[in-house]
Nucleic acid binder design. Sequence first.
RNA 1: GGUGAGUUACCCAAGUGGCCAACGGGGGCAGACUGUAAAUCUGCUGGCAUUUGCCUUCGGAGGUUCGAAUCCUCCACUCACCA
Length: 405
Amino acid sequence: MQMQERIEAALSQITRATAEIIDLERIETLIKRYVETGERYTVKAGFDPTGSDLHLGHTVLLSKLRTFQQNGARIQLLIGDFTATIGDPTGKSETRKVLDRETVLANAKTYTDQVFKILDPDLTDVVFNSEWLEALGASGLVALTTTYNVARMLERDDFEKRYKAGKSISVSEFIYPLLQGYDSVALKSDIEIGGTDQKFNLLMGRHLQRVYGVGKEQAVLMMPILEGLDGVQKMSKSLDNYIGITESPKDIYAKTLSISDDLMWRYYELLSEKSLEEIAQMKDEVAAGRLHPKAAKEALAMELVARFYDKAAAKEAKEAFDRVFKAKQTPDDMPEFSLESGTWICKALTETGLEPSTSQARRDIKQGAVRIDGEKVQDERLALDKAGTYVLQVGKRKFAKVKVG
RNA sequence: GGUGAGUUACCCAAGUGGCCAACGGGGGCAGACUGUAAAUCUGCUGGCAUUUGCCUUCGGAGGUUCGAAUCCUCCACUCACCA
């Protein structure tokens, strides 16, 4: 039966590469109803309005939301402007600064601009949780806190670890999951999706929907956390192990190629449009030696560039990359500087931003990491006194063009 | 409120009067090897000074001393146990 096939196809797309689903039957029911009657359901996903650029880690979630949109969902894109002032308990996070209204709106704007590169704006409602959380008031907040107890709160993995390690836990951090859960009450969400690290908070939504008598308990769909370029830690801006979706094609391409082969398969699974079967097949071919792992990685890098730009940009990024690194040529778009004749090499390096300090510059020269026009600099006392244009290089990837005289 | 322990560089963590810009590990950077991979090995990892010199750093502020990360006083913060 055709309808049954549509339902199954939708479910298979939705469950692809998920980490865990709680109450799958509910999701099935919602999709079935949509296919049969056209009635839509809501999927909530929360984001902090910290104003940072989106990276591939976010796209794992966003792509899943897109899949939901294609299968009957309206997305409740929750901007946690109120909760952002507390900070999700992630171990290190101190209580954050209260963001003023203007900053929040500005951040939300840069956020949604990027989000709509992936999501369909017509099927997305952008909502701010300050709307109902500010109205909650002290009595409302107290009522909210009575629905949970400390022992259960401490079950949260993060709290437990910190507690055992003798680290500080602020009382406000206990409030965070409650407020996030309350968002689900206010929005009457059918489904909420988030990373596996959000499990506790996501389940809180179910708990509170039950306590507050919303009449339904949201299903929860968790996506795996995308590891950053180091392959170990979560991709995040603060660890500087991320690929931003607004980065240049060149950078996206280069960063993708720098990941390990193991991590590549992970990225394929979570980020690629390829089906899991296709990916498994590629993996087999690499294992059998029929496909060079680097070729597979190049394909992934190009797919990612094409996703955020287009195929032409992807091709260009690959060519530029090959030119620089395979043929050992210099890139064609280096920052340019002009320097006075007689400039000391270490000063030249700091002034062009290739090195943070002259001490660091000296160390790198000693180690043979600095080159001028491809020639290793041997003497740290070298002065650039011959007029002309040179290419300064530190390590493999930092370049600058300088004009002397 | 009481008692005890603690706060060291990006992170963890040694150091309990001079040999301390401060052991070790992680991370980072660089070199070798490669596919600008990964893993591995090696070096470096406060700043300034065109080379053994100067300045700043061990929670904060004072003090003792020829000399302090180390001793004393006060303050701030964290944790544990008790209330």
